[in-house]
């Protein structure tokens, strides 16, 4: 039960960890952008796609939100090679995260699009706004005010979820923690340090997104 913490053996790896944190952020950022694109397409299909397309998107959303992302990536990374489709670890994780994010973002975006009222657009038109002004002053602030809190928390969840890339050998923050752990054997130091980095990174992302919401769209977002 006697254990001396020796952070000195782990701190030389700090820049290595920070590089890993950057990979985590890039991975989840790419997956988020892809998910936003497919989510927007999915939300529009749900709202204006007719019964067949809307039903297909609904089935997709139900399936992907009710199964674990880890197993989805397992199927992509270990299962699809049986059918002759091979992915690199990074591509497999990115694809799995994108497909998963698309399902959640479809639901989030659908709620946002339906929150703009027709009367507000008409009021804008009456005041002589052109299409661009309507978009800038009415539609976007409205949608972002409703959507930024759930979108921001979805992004944070994705940064945390990107840690499962380590399972497939992607060297992001958690993957690099595994590497350093297996060379220094300072498990408690390594994983507490990495946990701290995750807290800092996600807190930074939350604050940044809240500032964007506050000064870009006059929306108030709670940080803590």
């Amino acid at each position: 039960m006697h254990y001396v913490l020796q952070y000195g053996q782990v701190t030389p790896f700090l820049s290595y960890f920070l590089g890993g944190a950057l990979i985590s952020l890039v991975l989840s950022g790419l997956a988020f952008c892809g998910g936003m694109f497919f989510g927007l397409v999915g939300a529009l299909c749900r709202l204006h796609g007719g019964p067949v397309l809307s039903g297909l998107v609904r089935a997709y959303v139900v399936f992907f939100t009710n199964t674990p992302q880890l197993v989805q990536i397992y199927v992509i990374f270990y299962g699809l090679p049986d059918l002759g489709i091979l992915f690199s670890p990074f591509a497999a994780v990115l694809l799995g995260m994108t497909l998963n994010a698309a399902a959640y973002l479809t639901e989030i975006l659908r709620a946002g699009v339906t929150s703009v009222h027709r009367q507000e657009l008409e009021a804008g038109e009456t005041m002589g706004m052109n299409h661009l002004q309507l978009l800038r002053f009415i539609i976007l602030p409205h949608i972002f005010r409703v959507l930024l809190p759930p979108l921001s928390s979805q992004y944070i969840m994705m940064v945390l979820g990107s840690s499962m890339a380590a399972v497939f050998g992607v060297e992001e923050l958690t993957g690099r923690a595994f590497n350093v752990n297996s060379t220094t054997f300072r498990s408690i130091e390594v994983f507490t340090l990495v946990a701290g980095l995750y807290v800092l990174v996600t807190l930074g992302a939350t604050i940044l997104l809240a500032l964007v919401a506050r000064y870009g769209f006059r929306a108030r977002v709670k940080v803590l």
């Binding site: 944070i156 958690t174 595994f178 752990n181 498990s187 946990a195």
Partner: peptide, 14 residues
């Protein structure tokens, strides 16, 4: 704000 995997590994190795 800590991923489940990291918490799990902290308890596992810890």
């Amino acid at each position: 704000r800590v991923p489940f995997l990291v918490t799990l590994m902290l308890f596992f190795f810890g």
